[in-house]
Design a protein around this nucleic acid. Structure first.
Lengths: 358, 358
DNA sequence: ATGAAAGCGCTAACAA
DNA sequence: TTGTTAGCGCTTTCAT
């Protein structure tokens, strides 16, 4: 028989190890391991003995020893939209990368895949690659309802856990979600635009999007915004103009044209993340009565606030969002730590010039 | 000679271990350990050989193996003011406790000491106890300048690192600081109270404090507040009343008396963390024109916002503050991870009914 | 279905 | 000053 390490069990009150559990249950360490992690078959009776020994000793496996012995490698794949510098998804990307650094001692590999938001096929292609690499876990956002659902089901089949960031599909069996409630954030923006003032007109600036794109991830936020305005200011008109994010000259013209026709509109909102695009117009045509509200803490937006062009931003600490996501998800997968909440609605912050961090 | 583990070094490209370093440097593992952690004497020439081997192999010690072999225990002591339920320091306390949980696998012990803010001797007494227990690190706040300085110097002598939360003493050699800039937060409160309205009178409600107490930790915030008001509304009068936090009846009387004499004052601020104390008055005497601003995300304050009694709160996610503090500090002490910033000014949040988390 | 034992990479005590 | 070696607690392969 394998020798017991400790003769005098009573005298030491160290934290229990597999040895202690094995002794108490009258089995070997190997068996303890088998019941703990379900590797290999164990008879019902021994399983129970081991389980009761574990709970009576209050045994908790030493994660360092475990990690050392197994030298497991973890691969986490993230699937998010491709982005240009300074865009929303770049910050999400950064959060993932930063979070992964904290797991350096676990030989965690992070692989981020980028898909084209205008083409479902691009999402599908990338999800196929991910499945091939059989990762320990997947984090993605949920734009294309059908494609995402299909992918999720395939992951479930292979027993690969997955998490959502930014948005989710409620029906799916995801492990974790991090994001804001977009409807509420829209309402908050409307509140900030209108609070302590009597508003009769609001200009909502929207983005011309690629006509191929079916998904409209911004809709809930927009509705949160307009519903709030309609509820609290029934007499208020919401004007809308569209600008092309690639065409700053055109943007300027659109804005100048609108305000030529509506010189008495002073409240401007943009419910996507690019209010900074209005910067040129706002700077060129100052208006002391004007109030501008935007969303998201992109650097460009922060600068617009700093310059006094935008009054106020509804933010969600973007990279913190993905940082928290990967952190909790990896802790779940690697350490088996159950996340405190499955759905994590990150706090909506309010940013003005007065509370900008330096 | 100790046998080399790997014969064919070229063929495997695993992450290097002490063996590899020892081989390359032509010394034993023990020696590598000595130069890495400065245990025991090593000749200058071998030290250099080892060091160059380490850097050429890009060697990083495996923290799991290290932890497993050494079974080090870490004791972190925190020294903060004693508190009643629902007070600011209770949240700080919670943050420490929560953060410590994440280090369960490192056998980290957390010991929190509480001192009486009215008696320097209480701080001194507790700091003595902490020194006796020779902890791996200390976190405290800095109220009593002289006493804290003395304690800090003693810690430095013993080579014990320390960190500050909430406030700090710039001259000291602390490892880490987490807190807000109180002056700026005061100004933010004033901004929120006055923005988009023309203010002629402001009521500032202050707390009667124990006359023994010398420290006035709230002063910088108060000054941030009053300076902002004076700068932006030179014609504005700032009225002040004092209430006793223990005497809710008296508070009601003080408030009623003030507003009997000044019925046209509608802006109220409280620069300490207990704006909720005004709740009774505010509920009893509604005023649609009224704007109330307070500080800090105590549960009682949050409820006052939820009930519509307080318009807006300047917050700092109190427990996150101490959570982050212990987390970075422990990572520094245990894993040798250098913190990204020595001074961490946590973000000042703005909380209204519209962006309260559920 | 279960047991035995060889490591995982590092530390620390002991030898030399 | 330097080398050697027995573990730390767990996983995993090989026997049985």
């Amino acid at each position: 028989m394998e020798k017991t390490r400790r003769i005098v069990q009573e005298t030491d009150n160290k934290t229990p190890t597999v040895f202690d559990v094995a002794d108490l249950a009258g089995v070997s360490r190997g068996t303890v391991d088998r019941v703990l992690y379900g590797r290999g078959r164990v008879s019902q009776s021994t399983r129970e003995k081991v389980l009761s020994a574990i709970s009576s000793l209050n045994y908790i496996p030493n994660s360092h020893a475990s990690q050392l012995a197994s030298r497991k490698e973890y691969l986490f794949c993230c699937l998010i939209p491709e982005f240009s510098k300074g865009e929303y998804w770049e910050y999400i990307n950064t959060g993932f990368v930063e979070a992964a650094k904290n797991f350096s001692s676990y030989s965690l590999k992070l692989r981020i895949y980028y898909y084209n938001q205008n083409e479902e096929s691009s999402f599908v292609e990338n999800s196929r690659k991910i499945l091939e690499s059989s990762p320990s876990g997947v984090i993605m956002n949920a734009v294309f309802r059908d494609e995402v659902t299909l992918f999720a089901h395939k992951l479930e089949e292979k027993g690969i856990p997955y998490a959502f960031v930014d948005n989710k599909i409620d029906e799916l069996d995801y492990t974790l979600y991090h994001g804001v409630d977009p409807y509420k954030s829209g309402a908050l923006g409307a509140y900030l635009l209108t609070v302590r003032s009597d508003v009769k007109d609001v200009l909502m600036v929207r983005l011309k999007r690629d006509p191929r794109r079916k998904a409209d991830p911004n809709r809930p936020r927009r509705h949160g915004f307009t519903d709030y305005v309609e509820d609290h200011f029934p007499q208020c008109r919401i004007h809308t103009v569209f600008i092309d994010p690639e065409d700053s000259e055109g943007t300027l013209l659109v804005m100048e044209d609108f305000f030529k026709r509506h010189p008495d509109v002073h409240h401007i909102a943009m419910t996507n993340s690019r209010v900074f695009l209005l910067g040129e117009y706002l700077k060129k045509h100052p208006d002391p009565q004007r109030i501008v509200v935007g969303f998201d803490d992109l650097d460009n937006n922060l600068n617009a606030v700093k310059d006094g062009l935008v009054n106020c931003l509804v933010i969600r600490h973007i990279s913190q969002q993905s940082y928290a996501s990967l952190t909790s998800f990896a802790e779940f997968v690697i350490l088996g730590r159950t996340p405190r909440h499955r759905n994590n609605f990150v706090h909506m912050g309010i940013l003005t010039k007065m509370n900008m961090d330096s």
